[in-house]
Amino acid sequence: MKVIFLQDVKGKGKKGEIKNVPDGYARNFLFKKGLAVEATPANLKELE
């Protein structure tokens, strides 16, 4: 799953980066803790 990092995550990505991460990791950790959002067209547009 492609995500946009909202904060630096040690060993995974830095704020503003767009990266592919495993689905479970994204849903169960990154999204729940507010560290990233899914890289949807709407979210990508907001990032610009």
Rank of each mutant, 00 (worst) to 15 (best):
N43W: 08
F5I: 01
P22R: 09
K10D: 12
V3K: 00
K2N: 12
V21D: 01
L6W: 02
L44D: 05
T40M: 05
G13D: 01
N28V: 08
G34D: 06
K15I: 07
K33P: 02
E48G: 14
I4H: 02
I4W: 04
M1R: 09
A36F: 01
P41F: 11
L44A: 06
N28L: 11
N28I: 08
I4L: 11
V3N: 00
G24F: 14
K14W: 09
T40F: 06
E17R: 03
R27S: 07
V21T: 02
V37Y: 06
K12M: 15
G16K: 01
K33I: 09
R27W: 10
A39G: 04
R27D: 04
P41K: 11
E48P: 10
L30Q: 01
G24Y: 14
K15D: 02
L6V: 08
F29W: 11
L6S: 03
L47H: 10
A26V: 07
K32Q: 10
E17S: 07
A36K: 01
V21F: 07
A26G: 04
D8M: 05
E17I: 03
T40Q: 04
A42Y: 09
F29K: 05
A39I: 05
T40N: 10
K19E: 03
F31Y: 06
G11N: 08
L35N: 01
K45L: 13
G34A: 08
G24M: 13
K14A: 10
G16S: 06
Y25G: 03
K33T: 08
I18R: 03
Y25K: 05
T40S: 10
G11F: 07
N20S: 13
I4P: 00
V3M: 02
G34W: 05
D8H: 09
K19P: 00
I4N: 00
K19M: 12
K33V: 08
K12W: 15
K32S: 09
P22S: 12
F31W: 03
A42N: 12
G34P: 01
K45W: 11
P22A: 11
N43G: 04
D23E: 15
E46Y: 14
G16F: 09
A26Q: 05
E17L: 02
T40R: 05
L35P: 01
R27N: 09
N43V: 12
G34K: 11
N20G: 07
G11M: 06
F29S: 05
G16Q: 03
L47F: 15
G24Q: 13
K12H: 15
K32M: 12
F29A: 05
K33R: 13
E48T: 14
K32R: 12
A39W: 11
V3T: 01
G16R: 03
N20Q: 13
K12Y: 15
L47S: 07
K33H: 15
K45P: 06
L47K: 07
K14M: 11
K32P: 15
E38Q: 10
K10P: 15
P41I: 13
I18F: 04
Y25L: 08
Q7N: 09
F29H: 10
E46V: 12
F5S: 00
K10F: 13
T40W: 04
K15M: 08
K10T: 11
L47W: 15
R27E: 09
V37E: 05
Q7T: 12
G11S: 06
T40K: 05
A36V: 06
P41Y: 11
N43A: 13
L47Y: 14
F5G: 01
P22K: 09
L35W: 13
I4E: 02
K15F: 04
I18Q: 05
G11V: 02
N43K: 09
Y25A: 05
G13E: 01
M1Q: 05
V21E: 03
A26H: 04
A36W: 01
R27V: 13
P41V: 14
E17W: 04
P22W: 08
Q7S: 09
K14G: 05
V3I: 09
F5M: 04
I4S: 01
K45E: 12
K19D: 02
N20Y: 15
K14P: 01
K15R: 12
G34L: 09
L30M: 03
K45S: 10
V9Q: 01
R27Y: 12
E38D: 04
K45V: 09
V21H: 00
F31L: 13
K2M: 15
V3P: 00
F31I: 12
A26S: 03
L30P: 01
M1K: 08
A42K: 13
P41H: 11
E46A: 14
G11D: 08
L30D: 01
A39L: 09
Q7M: 13
K33G: 08
V37F: 04
V21Q: 05
R27M: 10
E17N: 04
G34H: 11
E46T: 11
P22L: 08
L44N: 06
E46M: 12
I4D: 00
L35Q: 04
A39F: 11
K10A: 13
K14F: 12
D23W: 15
Y25I: 07
E46K: 11
F31T: 03
A26M: 06
K32I: 14
N28T: 08
A26L: 08
K19F: 06
K12P: 01
N43Q: 09
A42I: 09
E38S: 07
L6R: 04
F31G: 01
A42F: 10
E38F: 05
K2R: 14
N43Y: 09
E46S: 10
P41G: 09
L30S: 00
V21G: 00
N20T: 15
K19L: 13
V37P: 00
G24T: 14
K33D: 08
N28W: 12
G13S: 03
Q7H: 12
K14I: 09
Y25T: 05
G16A: 04
N28F: 12
E38K: 09
K45H: 11
Y25V: 07
V9R: 01
V37L: 12
P41W: 12
E48R: 06
K2E: 10
G34F: 10
G24N: 13
D23Q: 13
V37W: 06
G11Y: 07
V3A: 01
E38L: 11
A36M: 01
F5Y: 08
A26T: 07
K14N: 09
E17D: 14
M1I: 13
A26F: 12
N28S: 10
A39S: 05
V9G: 01
T40I: 07
K15A: 10
A26P: 01
K19T: 08
N28K: 12
N28R: 10
K19Q: 07
L44V: 11
K32V: 14
V37I: 14
K32D: 07
E46R: 09
